[in-house]
Amino acid sequence: MKIIGHCYINPRGAFFNGQNVLIATEENYLKNYFSELKIDYSKFYKMDLLSKGAFLGDYLLRNSYKDLLHVENELQFIFANTSSSKETDIRFIESYERKKNPSPSLFVYTLPNILTGELAIKHKWFGENIFYILTKFDSEFFNDQIVMSFLRGNEYCLCGWVEMTGSPEDECFMFLVAKSEVVNENFSNNLNEILNTYRNE
């Protein structure tokens, strides 16, 4: 198990492999980063917070994907958070309670795993996907999931902790892991160190 790239996004900045890539200059930081990165992808504007976060994280990781452009099936998504799609859920409830019109375009984002669909569409990845709800980021848990995924025959795992509800504590931490012969006993410790460094930036 080898981490071949990682990134982190929060309302203050965006990072790739430990390096600060962007600093937020506007309150709407996701739109801010999207504009700064000059990405041409009009569907971005329609996405919910979770999908926007994961989409930008995926873009920050673009240089780590170089060796897996041929991969269609053997890349699995393993994502998790605590609050599911809470922000969109509340907006959908408002659409029928306050605006008196249940909004279909909000409803389709009231599931956390929609973000994996967005990434699959963008890259034409047909691999396995799963979304977990955890009380907090758990490196051991991700470690187990990745081990299982590789034993099932996958070659890469794109993992993400996307806890975003519109709060200053929001964060999107993503890491790409490749299968390797070398057993990495310290995998979960490494993962915790990486995330803690980002959190303390």
């Binding site: 009009s42 504007y45 329609k46 279909p104």
Partner: peptide
């Protein structure tokens, strides 16, 4: 479509509303 705002059939339902 991708040429424009990237809207789809779900958004068409919003336009009807």
């Amino acid at each position: 479509g991708d040429e424009g705002l990237g809207l789809d059939s779900i958004d068409a339902l919003e336009f009807i509303v």
